[in-house]
């Protein structure tokens, strides 16, 4: 069975029920609208509105979900929420995200968060973190396309204030 998802820019996506269920948000909405896998009429007569996702972002989200629809669900330990987050991005996911610019990754991250697709959210946030890792502040600023409004003297002062006594 298929489910209709409607984006903020009024684009309709027809996706497999299993893919729709990968999003906790969509699952909840389907439940609230009494849409079930065994009731074709309910699926045909309803669309799921997703006002926080644009069509371009939705397309990327669905592409990711297609690849991961058969993944085993990962057990999340109780302490993981504020515990240390270590997530290994698979080769396919690296390839999938490698050409996305920062702005696009941020959009995708926001969508994954809104749709509550944990695996995609982890992939994106880890990818952004990996891009930042090991870079100096001006390199990160360039990547983020941010103009630095701190002077060199101010930067020096900030470093001085937070330096450890032995550094």
């Amino acid at each position: 069975p298929n489910v209709k998802l409607v984006t903020s820019d009024n684009e309709e996506f027809v996706v497999d029920f299993r893919i729709a269920k990968m999003s906790v948000t969509v699952s909840r909405l389907m439940e609230a609208m009494n849409m079930s896998e065994t009731d074709d009429a309910s699926l045909l007569s309803n669309s799921i509105p997703l006002p926080n996702v644009t069509k371009a972002v939705m397309a990327r989200v669905i592409e990711w979900c297609e690849k991961h629809k058969n993944d085993e669900p990962k057990e999340e330990k109780e302490n993981d929420k504020r515990g240390r987050t270590t997530h290994v991005v698979s080769d396919w996911d690296k390839e999938f995200l490698k050409n996305d610019e920062f702005g696009r990754l941020c959009q995708l991250m926001g969508a994954a968060n809104y749709l509550e697709i944990k695996g995609l959210f982890n992939d994106i946030s880890q990818t952004i973190a990996n891009m930042i890792h090991g870079k100096k502040s001006d390199e990160i600023a360039e990547m983020f396309n941010i103009h630095c409004d701190l002077t060199e003297a101010e930067k020096k002062e900030i470093r001085k204030k937070t330096a450890w006594c032995e550094d």
């Binding site: 240390r84 987050t85 997530h87 941020c106 991250m109 926001g110 968060n113 959210f121 946030s125 880890q126 952004i128 973190a129 990996n130 930042i132 890792h133 090991g134 870079k135 100096k136 502040s137 990160i140 600023a141 983020f144 941010i146 103009h147 630095c148 409004d149 701190l150 930067k155 900030i158 470093r159 937070t162």
Partner: peptide
């Protein structure tokens, strides 16, 4: 990005905190 999403990124690269702090 909402703060909690930025914090999610910071959580994953805590060694970069000092450099991120000097961006702006």
């Amino acid at each position: 990005l909402p703060y909690e999403l930025l914090w999610e990124i910071f959580d994953r690269t805590p060694e970069s905190i000092s450099n991120i702090r000097l961006i702006s």
